[in-house]
Design a protein around this nucleic acid. Sequence first.
DNA 1: CTGGGGAGGGGGCCC
DNA 2: AGGGCCCCCTCCCCA
Length: 597
Amino acid sequence: MELPNHAKQLLLQLNQQRAKGFLCDVIIVVENALFRAHKNILAASSIYFKSLVLHDNLINLDTEMVNPSVFRQVLDFIYTGKLLSSSEQSNEQNFSALLTAASYLQLNDLAALCRKKLKRNGGKPLLGKPSTPGPNSRSRLNNQRLSSSTPSNHYPPTPSDADQPQPDEGLREKLSDDEMFVGSSGKNGNGGNGGSNGNLSSGASAGEPDHGLDLSKKSPPSAGTTTDALSPHSNSQESPQSASVSTTNSASLDDSSTTLPGLDACGQEPMELTPNPKAPEQTGFEQTQSQADGPTPHKKSRQASRKKEWPKKDASGLKSEDYERPLVNGVIVGPKEGRSSNSGAGAGSGSSFASDQSFQCKEEEDGGENGQDHTDDSGQSEGENAGGTAGGGGGGGKGKHGANYVYRQEGFEPAFGDNLYVCIPCGKGFPSSEQLNAHVETHTEDGLFVKEEGGTTFVKEEDEDEAEDLSAPVGPSNFGGTETRPFRCTICGKSYKDPATLRQHEKSHWLTRPFPCNICGKMFTQRGTMTRHMRSHLGLKPFACEECGMRFTRQYRLTEHMRVHSGEKPYECQLCGGKFTQQRNLISHLRMHTSPA
DNA sequence: CTGGGGAGGGGGCCC
DNA sequence: AGGGCCCCCTCCCCA
């Protein structure tokens, strides 16, 4: 007994989910466009993808092998088995590009389809493009690019040996100059020494501004010779994640930006893949592991593994809105964010992608942001840290790591059922995106930022940034006493020196966090925290240790790290006299003294 | 195997 | 917006 349309239906659902970003657990970066997808689907369609998604949640594809437009077709193909080529594209060039991409990605069926098509048209497959499996060619290209002579025999290549992380131009623009040289760190091609973090790419360095891209400046001179051991950093770069940042492309943001996966290009003629019995036969082989060829310093593996962790839970939290937002300067830009990110790059955004109508998706101004809350922590966090001041140790701990930033919220256990499209704020499920969107609009009128406790303050979405107007803090001296900290939070009673800080603090009480990460959808109460978080996605580590070349995402980390070299151990245990370089280690040490052993 | 220390990384929060 | 600090998690090394 067999259900006739089962497979088809399943695929249809999956494709719809992809369109909404629902349960998507991997992001593919192609030039300045991001695509979300499901690891399982990718893994089932290509060995190459299989090896990539194994450890990566953020994958960066070689822009020399595939461009956003082509990748969109590829992705559509993967999810539908149909080749949708718009009239304008259904020419040889397009098929040729598709073939290149398919070969690179090891999508054999698609490649065969393209070859067939090209043959039929009398075209020549793969002109000038490598016909070898992507990975290899990719490595080759990368090596060239890096001018590294290191052979890349790994196959499939781990992102690590594949690319040299170089932040996408667009992304760079979005971040401060000093952040730019980061990605390069390490990873140089092969591990060999990444050590030098970044140095490699450095050719660039000369003449850059102080903080700038001069990799050589920031990184240790040892470039070529440094050992891996010294530069765990490099290792970290090899982690999948870093790979993600690898593209060298200098896509100028202006235009091309965008790609909205999940959207069907209109007017396309489907070219269906003929049933292929042996199709999904990818044998399972996960050799990625072996990649860590050579002795790997422990840190390497450790870091690598850590990297793998990040998106674990977050990835799925992507909002469809983000998903569909055009990218500008390499960063997904949406109506909402666009507004807020007015910093240079952001500003341009609006206009920059305007030209790219084709993929644009209209979504209402605010539609989504609110939708994203993850409450996991919110609930308690506030409470805790609020009251807690110092003791609030809770404050810090809350929500860490694990929270589900996604579709599930405590208190909102939605009955999904068939309703795959779930309104995050209220937990209602809808059978179609249209219905969900319609529903969401009803929210936007009400404003979704509700204070967690008391719920007395409503902040309209539009005012997100100017929340102060509505969440007017209790003015100075409303609470007798603290003259130095006259601004007090009505919810938890903590007081602050200035209204801005109070306002900032108050956001921690909001049920909905106003600053979402455009990549994983995680929500933050402070923009700065979100920006910092973004760095981890992008592999940006602007702060380099001049001693060993190790790079960090935060200045503070570097400062801390420097003590390793200086031998300074400023933190002393009053009980046993033990000294530590880092306060946190003293703290954990103290616990050892105090814990009831 | 286990516990302690060192250290990288992430998030929250205040200034 | 960025800096700095705190807290937590986790991994690795080593005794």
